[in-house]
């Protein structure tokens, strides 16, 4: 009796007789499911650290919640109180002015530095590294260093001013100068960030339009206005957006430099809400203040994004 089994070897794609070992379960994840699994850790982390506190803050803002104890639902009571709270609106005004001035100056200096240090210079790498040093310091350290430097009696700033024949200034103890001081410190601290982003943007611009413009005899100012700025616009908007959001939330430096004074001339909104939540333990009210601040920041961000989207179109 002859065997009915053919002698020819099985074709590679013929699996009718070959039973493949089962794949581990994770190898079987494909398509959308794989995407969800890969995203899960990040989403869980985000949910735990950002989304839950945010939702909890919104929840708490509808309660009289003082000293960590929930004392009853009051609906929009906290928001109504905020409408009549002059200190809150003053702190929003202060932070808005601070943001406008600081971000404008940081952008101007950052762009200038980026343009300058994108040229071929001797030791260019060293200069670039030095410029970003302030950004690496923590805001608390920056505050302490500048508090000493701005000390009218023993600080180096007044010493230098007097060497130059200029009058000494009481930086942190006069209303307008205190505001100027926190702007100076923020500009010193964060211009490097603006510089870094704009430099990256500049270096990624296409070369051809610039070469063509030069061949056509365009002057540097013309090239800057007609080519550099428009091509750099998306990068500029991203940098402005990040710095605007950061400035609206400023806390550490103001806390150390002026504590919000003199009077309440430098009391930014974060400082006011911190005081409300952790000195007066009126957490429900502070949460309501934070929600309004968050909405305002979102509106500003959306405006930026809208401009950015239009630019890209």
């Amino acid at each position: 009796m002859t065997s009915s089994i053919p002698n020819t070897p099985l074709a590679a794609d013929d699996t009718s007789l070959w039973i493949a070992p089962p794949l581990p379960w994770y190898r079987r994840l494909t398509g959308d499911l794989l995407g969800y699994v890969l995203l899960a850790p990040a989403v869980t982390l985000l949910a735990a650290l950002t989304i839950y506190p945010l939702l909890y803050s919104i929840y708490v803002s509808f309660f009289r919640y003082t000293g960590g104890v929930m004392k009853g639902f009051i609906g929009l009571g906290n928001f109504q109180r905020l409408i009549g709270d002059g200190q809150y609106w003053n702190s929003l005004r202060v932070v808005a002015e601070f943001t406008l001035v600081s971000v404008s100056l940081e952008f101007a200096f950052g762009l200038g530095l980026a343009l300058f240090l994108s040229q071929k210079l001797v030791l260019r790498g060293l200069w670039r590294s030095l410029v970003i040093v302030p950004m690496m310091l923590t805001p608390v350290v920056v505050g302490v260093i500048w508090r000493l430097m701005l000390n009218p009696g023993i600080g180096i700033i007044n010493y230098v001013l007097q060497l130059l024949g200029l009058p000494a200034v009481e930086w942190l103890s006069k209303g307008n100068w205190a505001f100027v001081s926190i702007v100076i410190v923020d500009v010193w601290n964060w211009t490097p960030f603006m510089f870094l982003i704009l430099l990256a943007g500049l270096e990624s611009l296409p070369v051809e339009p610039f070469e063509a413009a030069r061949i056509d005899g365009a002057k540097p100012v013309r090239i800057f206005l007609d080519h550099t700025l428009p091509l750099l616009a998306p990068t500029i908007l991203v940098a402005l957006l990040i710095r605007t959001m950061d400035c609206l939330r400023i806390f550490d430096q103001v806390f150390i430099l002026t504590g919000g004074g003199p009077g309440n001339s430098t009391e930014v909104v974060s400082l006011y809400l911190y005081k409300t939540a952790f000195k007066f333990f009126d957490q429900g009210y502070a949460a309501a203040g934070i929600i309004i601040l968050m909405v305002l920041i979102n509106i500003v961000s959306m405006l930026y994004v809208r401009v950015l989207t239009r630019q890209e179109e």
Binding site: G153, E170, L172, S173, K174
Partner: peptide, 15 residues
Amino acid sequence: PPGAANFNADEVGAA
């Protein structure tokens, strides 16, 4: 001393 309007305890002691 200049800046006393923003002094804290350590600055008073130092002055």
